[in-house]
């Protein structure tokens, strides 16, 4: 038996049982059950977001509060880092304050695990560079499980800017571990060839990429990447890779459409599809986010008792 989970730094190192356990716990909260707050009162959660975030930070904040933790947000944008302190020194300073769980987002891949090595508490990666965003993949998995009744044996098309997406990487790891067929769809400049070696099918054509898919997962494309750098223009991107009715018709009739947000309507997704609640899970994903983060924090804290 493996040691209990100390941190959640990525999906890549998780075992399927660990994923299942988190999802089962999260499912209970998602069903509206309230947490027993007593075990967590007087514990402290510190949110350190070196990159700006609204939805993820709020979601973690809410998750901590619902578990009864004291939640402290440190605005890293105005912190000592700006005064020249190194990441490790910041970590040591924080560690001296003895938090119980640290939620960290950083623009550098690997920065969160570097920090985790230097502190005594549990660390949750809330996104490191283009590397991983494990809680997003878990909340996506929970959403799929609730809509599809399972999280294995599905064909899942992840579409758009895979190259710059930590969401994509965590999802690829999770969905493959759980036994799904993962397709990556997008222009070749945004879909690194190396991902084929991870066992994904690579498609540059949405029609073949979406064919018979159970789940269509759209990714956000940042505007500056469209203006002639990776793809020529927004209109050309939408024409070939934006999700509209015509392209979605290649997926299974009951396929669901996911998006981690924030979305660019008319660029990667047609607004009408995003708003179609029978197909789009975009709001549900946000809801599942809180439940999953509660389950993650609880799992890590219980392991340290």
């Amino acid at each position: 038996m493996r040691a209990p989970l100390r941190h959640l730094l990525g999906i890549e190192t998780l075992r399927p049982e660990e994923i299942d356990a988190i999802l089962s716990k999260a499912a209970i909260y998602a069903d509206g059950h309230k947490a027993d707050r007593k075990p967590f009162s007087e514990l402290t959660q510190v949110n350190m977001f070196f990159e700006n975030s609204t939805r993820t930070q709020s979601s973690f904040e809410l998750a901590g509060m619902r578990l009864g933790l004291d939640v402290l947000n440190i605005a890293m944008a105005t912190s000592s880092i700006k005064k020249g302190e190194t990441l490790i020194d910041t970590a040591l300073t924080l560690n001296a304050m003895k938090p119980d769980v640290l939620i960290v987002r950083h623009s550098g891949g690997g920065a969160v695990s570097l920090l985790a090595d230097k502190v005594d508490c549990a660390v949750v990666n809330a996104g490191d560079g283009r590397h991983e965003h494990p809680t997003q993949a878990l909340l996506d998995a929970l959403t799929i499980q609730r809509r599809k009744g399972r999280i294995s044996g599905l064909t899942i098309a992840i579409c758009g800017d895979i190259a710059h997406s930590r969401v994509a990487r965590s999802n690829i790891f999770l969905l493959q571990k759980m036994g799904n067929r993962v397709r990556l769809v997008g222009p070749n400049n945004l879909v690194p060839k190396g991902l084929a070696e991870l066992g994904c099918e690579i498609h540059t054509d949405m029609r073949t990429g979406l064919e018979d898919a159970d789940v269509v997962m759209m990714l956000r494309l940042q505007k500056e990447r469209m203006q002639g750098a990776f793809v020529p223009s927004e209109r050309e991107y939408f024409h070939y890779w934006g999700l509209d009715e015509e392209k979605l018709a290649f997926a299974k009739p009951d396929a669901i459409v996911m998006h981690p947000g924030p979305m660019n309507r008319g660029v990667e997704i047609d607004g009408a599809i995003a708003d179609d609640l029978s197909r789009s899970t975009i709001q549900e994903q946000v809801e599942m986010g809180v439940a999953v983060r509660m389950a993650v924090i609880e799992t890590l804290l219980e392991a340290r008792r």
Binding site: G228, P232, E236
Partner: peptide
């Protein structure tokens, strides 16, 4: 290949 043949921004090659 690029707008105004400047070698900076890709033209709409697909279209």
């Amino acid at each position: 290949i690029t707008l105004e043949r400047k070698g900076e921004e890709m033209a709409e090659i697909g279209f």
